[in-house]
Design a protein around this nucleic acid. Structure first.
Lengths: 199, 199
DNA sequence: GTCTATACGGTGATAGAC
DNA sequence: GTCTATCACCGTATAGAC
């Protein structure tokens, strides 16, 4: 039982993920959502830009929450990230290589056209990066180093999603998961009595 | 002095990079290229799909050649990749965060709609990956390992381009370059009599 | 090979009845 | 809050003269 407003946002998310921003029409959203067309501009007076921005933020919120939940399952951030990406790979396969959120595709399209949408995408990306970073910091990594590692994780993750989509295989994501696990080491781990390091 | 055909392809490349596939109109291509509209369907009887496919392949060819040229400048593949990405970062800044080729954005959009365009993108990606891989193999890395490393390089590179575009900063690309240089090591380096190094 | 005119559907958006 | 009708414009694609 979802409201008309929420139903519009929901269906917009899936259409965006499949087709992107310019290719997704308002008529299509109306038709797929079953919402009355008259309601569209009632709930979203700023039109398409507003609908898409809200859809990005909405799906981003879910995405960040899910990421945090997954990361919390392992105390070791590297293992947690590995598991997260492997799980994502499975999900991408299930969904036939639409990752289940409109972020990647909308971000790249809207960057040159709509500042409002672009801003929404940046916000979500920043939250995702922060989630990775906090996880690493909580395990004893220095903040600046965690920042760099989180950036790389995010960048390669987005690239992996892109390649998985184009090749219609989750292999790039799985390969990425393994590589990050091997290379995402802490160069300044917390000091312990037994295993001290002297750089 | 370029032919009408080539001029159409050329301007299509830049429009695609800026706006993507659905957002780029045939009328716009005609207008920007200065080509006569009548010529469009004379040179490209299959319409938009054909124009875009050819544009992707054309820009891909240039991209691969440029990559190979850059990689050839350093004997060490890791250093070569580092320099390449750093140079790309500069270029992305100059071009105001349009990377100068339509691949990243078109690939992700067309994945779900046009198989013909999707195929063109896959072809270019495979060539790019092969260029990275061959460079690593030529420096003594095992083929299977070079394959994995090349995949990761490509994936994170695409993600870096995406983030640079969204944030309107080349920082993600530069951070990526540094990280890859630190982590893209050969786990099975070629054996030499002494510890030789070629500066 | 090029040009003009045009077909026909879809687009985002609005107005006004209910 | 919802619905219908309608707007002006844009999209791709084609036809036929030159």
């Amino acid at each position: 039982m979802t409201s008309t407003h929420d139903q519009i946002i929901l269906v917009t998310c899936t259409l965006l993920e499949k087709q992107g921003y310019p290719a997704t029409g308002l008529n299509e959203i109306v038709k797929e959502s079953g919402a009355p067309k008259g309601s569209l501009y009632y709930y979203f007076p700023d039109g398409k830009e507003q609908i898409v921005s809200e859809a990005v933020l909405f799906s981003g919120k879910i995405l960040v929450e899910r990421l945090q939940t997954e990361l919390a399952k392992h105390s070791d951030p590297i293992q947690a990230i590995y598991e997260y990406i492997m799980r994502l790979a499975g999900k991408v396969e299930e969904m036939q290589f639409a990752a289940g959120n409109p972020l990647t595709i909308v971000a790249i399209e809207a960057a040159g056209s709509s500042e409002r949408i672009s801003q929404a995408c940046r916000e979500v990306y920043s939250q995702l990066q922060a989630a990775f970073q906090e996880k690493m910091v909580s395990a004893g990594m220095a903040v600046s180093e965690a920042d760099e590692r989180a950036r790389l994780t995010l960048a390669s993750l987005e690239g992996g999603i892109l390649l998985s989509r184009v090749y219609r295989t989750a292999d790039p994501l799985r390969a990425l998961a393994g590589h990050l696990r091997d290379t995402l080491q802490n160069s300044n781990p917390p000091q312990t009595e037994s295993a001290e390091r002297h750089p």
